[in-house]
Design a protein around this nucleic acid. Structure first.
Lengths: 148, 148
DNA sequence: AACCTCCGGTCTCTTTTCGGGACCAGAGGC
DNA sequence: GCCTCTGGTCCCGAAAAGAGACCGGAGGTT
């Protein structure tokens, strides 16, 4: 129970990571953003063991990231992103930007294009007051209300 | 060796995750961005077992995310972010934005402020051509040069 | 020198988690 | 009635994580 206790720390990086920080969870979510909804579809795309997939899906449902619906037409359940899950898209896109920059010697395997536009989607860190583009050097941490 | 093979897939989300997707790696990097450089400092801040920390640091050095220097003044080695490591900041900030939104009922534990400005740093997904703010619905994947 | 401490790092043992396959039940299809 | 597909559970051997003992080099003290 040592590691799970990290989720109680007042840190908005640590807390999500206790949920998301493992081999499969973010990969499952990546598939979900690609439109995958069915149990066996996740399984065949990722090669994840069934029991592991079951664990991860259940946990994501418990945390409100996915919703399990008994399916609308057929009988087979669907796992769909909730609003909360949908909000994770920038995380995956930030990872992808990094992957394209540093782990894609032949260029990006996939372009993520603004639909109906020539541009590509990229993640940017900005100051919400002055709009300046920021890097780690420009940011200063400061105590907030959620600090116990 | 099944799981590691995912790193060979032509996907810029999957490839980084094989390196970053585990309990500790992103937490170690979070500490690195907070200025931590020494072995025992990582250890005491995170409560990570020493052998685990050793593994992770070594792996990050091998991947060029951290650099191990014999230290400039004293004798003790330092682990510092490389350029490649520095580029991971948006990933951590994207996670933090999500944590603040969905896992911080009492408000953000920490504000990440634009130094010398009142604004806060936030991650945004934008079209690099037209500048529009994008969500997952506005993005279409398209084959790129890195696709085998 | 002898002793003590601090530090990064290794080794080893136990517990937890993961991987992979067997097994199961419900829903159709034929 | 039988075969198949699907989501889901169970179980066991393998891999990874946790925890603590141990080690060696560098300083500091006396």
């Amino acid at each position: 129970m040592r590691y799970e206790e990290l989720a109680d720390l007042p840190c908005s990086i640590t807390r999500p990571l206790v949920l998301l920080g493992d081999r499969w969870t973010l990969l499952v979510l990546k598939e979900a953003f690609a439109g995958v909804r069915r149990f066996n579809a996740f399984r065949s795309h990722l090669g994840i063991p069934r029991s592991r997939l079951q664990d991860r899906l259940t946990r994501l449902v418990e945390h409100g990231v996915l919703a399990r619906r008994p399916a609308e037409d057929g009988e087979h359940p669907e796992y769909r992103l909730t609003r909360k899950g949908h909000d994770l898209y920038p995380v995956l896109m930030a990872i992808r930007d990094w992957g394209d920059s540093h782990m894609a010697p032949d260029g990006p395997p996939v372009h993520y294009r603004h639909t109906g536009c020539d541009g590509e989607a990229h993640v940017k860190l900005e100051c919400d007051a002055c709009g300046t583009r920021l890097s780690a050097h420009d940011v200063t941490p400061q105590a907030g209300p959620g600090l116990r």
